[in-house]
Design a binder for these strands. Structure first.
Length: 426
RNA sequence: GGAGAGAUGGCUGAGCGGCUGAAAGCGGCGGUCUCGAAAACCGUUUGUCCGGCAACCCCGGGCACGGGGGUUCAAAUCCCCCUCUCUCCGCCA
């Protein structure tokens, strides 16, 4: 959520920034409502101040036994009460309206985020590794997996519906190995591991920005809980409503969870394989950072995600998203894209974002920085995939496949896979 | 699922319808003492919104004692609803 006061005082900056990310809004209506809000507050509070001082006097009169004077004063106060009620009622409506508007407004891009209209204007920052050249026709993972007997798409449909996945044998083991490898690696680099609910309430999802605007992307239970679309939701909300000690920042958290996405509106895109499914595993990183430090923390988070790909020996590139392609809550985002032979292209496998104070304001996550005066201030929140496990498995299968149809297991994963060095042909 | 108890500031914990934004203790911060530290002593310490101001200092005001409604001139205090926590019983991976 944007700061209402900042928005009011810098309306043209906000308009321009929102326009750069292809969001247009009615700023005139906002200013009008905002002015009305403050007008109502001023009127209502003036009456309340009067009422309070009169109430105090009534108490004194009662104590002094001056019943008649007290009764007169009561009558006057009753009249103010009615006016106050009317003003407060309108104020509630105005604030409701303002709030709804502010909750659906995306974050402002960072000054350092490149300008651009959309995906095509994203900037490639660097590449790591060289895509392998095959001396045979490489297979796509959606063919390899079933042939190796480790991925069963058809039975997954029977169990749930299309775009779900069933892993068997070494497929299931590889999934587990990847989760443990990624999590252990992050822990060794200073992240604290968490495990928690994969259902979340609406306050939690509003905190991260998934609600109210993107409800159609979520699976919802009959108990008014939602399945989380990412562990970011859980990790970021751990400190919702809390005041953190500025001296202890940054907090570095990670968690493995399954992630659930309705994927409404994505029909026809990436329909095959593990790339776009309703349920997938992900190891997520989240940081709570001091505002002065969050840009640097984003760079190091990207490095932590890259580290996983490097250890797995998977070629990738780093993309910086332009203003037009930025996610709702983010002010600056780097995507990691892994090389997928089946696409003959790089495909997103991680997204690392600095949300600055956008989520912190929604979720009321603050810090007290003794050095900077001791007043609570919003922290900056960051999140990044480290990594999407299903897509990582797809990348391993495709990049490590051999001519006979078997797949080599990357060395770092072997200890996590009972020492197994290859996924053999059936 | 049944029965009961509770929810107060960073923490523990008092609180009669007005004198309580809140006792006391702990913690934090500042100071005295000390070569320094500890101890002791003194002082200080909620957040947020609106307005004034160049100002996150400061000044005036509003609101907040789990959340929402109600009674009242006035609610932490009385009433209702919701949420959560604890204890006992039942059930259970």
């Amino acid at each position: 959520m944007l700061d209402a006061r900042f928005t009011r005082e810098n309306i043209s900056i906000v308009n321009e920034a929102l326009l750069s990310r292809n969001c247009s809004w009615d700023s005139a209506a906002f200013l009008e409502l905002d002015a009305r809000r403050r007008e109502l507050i001023a009127s209502s509070e003036a009456l309340k101040a009067q009422r309070n001082s009169s109430s105090k006097r009534i108490g004194e009169l009662m104590k002094a036994g001056q019943k008649a004077e007290a009764a007169d004063a009561k009558e006057a106060v009753r009249g103010w009460g009615e006016q106050i009620d009317a003003l407060d009622k309108e104020l509630a409506e105005v604030e409701e309206c303002l709030n709804r508007e502010m909750l659906t407004l995306p974050n402002l891009p960072s000054d350092t985020t490149p300008q651009g209209a959309g995906e095509e204007d994203n900037i490639e920052k660097r590449r790591w590794g060289t895509p392998r050249t095959f001396d045979f026709e490489p297979k796509a993972h959606w063919d390899l997996g079933p042939e190796l007997g480790i991925i069963d798409f058809e039975r997954a449909v029977k169990l749930a519906k299309s775009r779900f996945v069933l892993l068997g044998g070494l497929g299931a083991s590889l999934e587990r190995a990847l989760i443990n490898f990624m999590t252990d690696t992050h822990i060794s680099r200073g992240y604290k591991e968490w495990w928690g609910p994969v259902l979340a309430n609406s306050e939690t999802l509003t905190g991260t920005g998934n609600l109210p605007k993107f409800e159609e992307d979520l699976f919802k239970t009959t108990g008014n809980l939602y399945l989380i679309p990412t562990a970011e939701v859980m990790l970021t909300n751990i400190h919702r409503g809390e005041v953190l000690d500025g001296a202890e920042l940054p907090l570095k958290y990670c968690a493995f969870t399954p992630c659930f996405r309705e994927e409404a509106g994505s029909a026809g895109r990436d329909t095959r394989g593990l790339i776009r499914v309703h349920q997938f595993d992900k190891v997520e990183m989240v940081k709570f950072a001091h505002p002065d430090d969050s840009l640097a923390q984003l760079e190091s988070m990207v490095a932590d995600a890259e580290n996983i790909l490097q250890l797995l020996g998977l070629p990738y590139r780093v993309i910086e998203l332009c203003t037009g392609d930025l996610g709702f809550a983010s002010s600056k985002t780097y995507d990691l894209e892994v090389w997928l032979p089946s696409y003959n292209d790089y495909k997103e496998i991680s997204s690392c974002s600095n949300c600055v104070d956008f989520q912190a304001r929604r979720a009321n996550i603050r810090m007290r920085d003794e050095a900077a005066g001791g007043k609570p201030a919003f922290v900056h929140t960051l999140n990044g995939s480290g990594l999407a496990v299903g897509r990582t498995m797809a990348a391993i299968l495709e990049n490590y496949q051999r001519a006979d149809g078997s797949v080599a297991v990357p060395e770092v994963l072997q200890p996590y896979l009972r020492g197994i060095k290859e996924i053999p042909c059936k």
